[in-house]
């Protein structure tokens, strides 16, 4: 906790800017029902395709739906997919990394080969293809009907997991071999105590850095998959589907339809990238390179 406070103090202006943007978007997503001026799904044929004005700040779409309200609700899909995928990826990856580093022998070999295998999967192609195979309908889990996005969250999460597995594996391997950890072990500390007390805290900063940057990638992936019609299903608002709907407007001149959802994606992603960069500079100033790519 004191580390976190120290970290926040060390954040530079671009880090604060990123944190501010991320904070605003998160708040917008959470409080969308309260702050959205209109129902994002309500059709209103009389008001269709109105340019931004005092009533509709960001205009309306072909169905007369308020663009601002749809963007605010769309933030929910973007953030939940981006953050959800990272959480799932971190859970799988960290477990796999610690397991491999601790287990050693055949288990280590097998797990790390699987990690290599998953890392050699072109993310977006597989995400599109697999959602395509499974179909875009809701996912039935027992009595629950989960929306199509859940498939994307799980899928992208699995494909993100090698990043976390490798980071955790490297740290866990180093720490498991360190003299002080051996000493603690000889003093009777359990494996769990060493994992939770020595390994995890040391993995935390790279995990946070990679996680923040991966949220940015996850958001763009969600928007892209929704853009080709395999993500969030209409009429639910998502920035990707809004852009897809706006394609005809490229030619007809309703500029607000393609501009605002795109700005929303870009701004959110800029926020996470700035925050991730700043946190990385703080935790690990030497690894200046960005090795994450998708």
């Amino acid at each position: 906790m004191s580390d976190l406070r120290k970290a926040l103090r060390g954040l530079d202006w671009s880090g604060w800017l990123g944190a501010g943007i991320v904070g605003l978007i998160v708040l917008a997503a959470i409080f969308a029902p309260l702050i959205a001026p209109y129902d994002p799904l309500a059709l209103n044929i009389e008001d269709r395709l109105t340019a931004p004005d005092a009533r509709h700040w960001l205009g309306t779409d072909q169905g007369g739906r308020d663009v601002l309200s749809r963007i605010l609700f769309g933030a929910r899909a973007s953030l939940s997919v981006g953050i959800g995928a990272v959480l799932i990826g971190a859970l799988i990856g960290v477990s796999a990394g610690i397991f491999a580093a601790y287990k050693g022998g055949l288990g280590e070999q097998v797990v790390m080969r699987i990690v290599d295998g998953v890392a050699s999967i072109p993310l977006l192609v597989w995400a599109i293809a697999i959602v395509g195979i499974l179909g875009v309908g809701p996912l039935a889990v027992g009595p629950l009907l989960l929306p199509n996005e859940v498939k994307i969250v799980v899928l992208v999460g699995c494909l993100f997991s090698p990043v976390f597995a490798r980071v955790t594996y490297a740290v866990a391997k180093r720490i498991a071999g360190a003299d002080y950890v051996r000493a603690r072990f000889l003093q009777g500390a359990s494996h769990w105590q060493i994992v939770s007390g020595d390994v995890l805290p040391n993995c935390l900063s790279p995990i946070i850095v990679q996680g923040t940057l991966l949220v940015a990638i996850g958001i763009v992936i969600e928007a892209s998959i929704s853009f080709v019609g395999l993500g969030v299903q209409p009429p639910q608002p998502s920035w990707g589907t809004m852009l897809s709907d706006a394609r005809s407007a490229i030619y007809s001149g309703e500029w607000w339809l393609p501009v605002f959802p795109g700005l929303a994606i870009s701004l959110t992603v800029i926020g996470f990238n700035l925050l991730g960069d700043a946190v990385r500079d703080l935790f690990d100033p030497r690894s200046e390179a960005r090795t994450l790519v998708a």
């Binding site: 940015a216 852009l243 394609r247 393609p258 795109g262 870009s266 992603v269 800029i270 700035l274 960005r290």
Partner: peptide, 17 residues
Amino acid sequence: VLGLSIPAFWLGIVLIR
């Protein structure tokens, strides 16, 4: 940072316009 954050497909739409 801008280049990393602007989605390619949106950039395409803007370029077409």
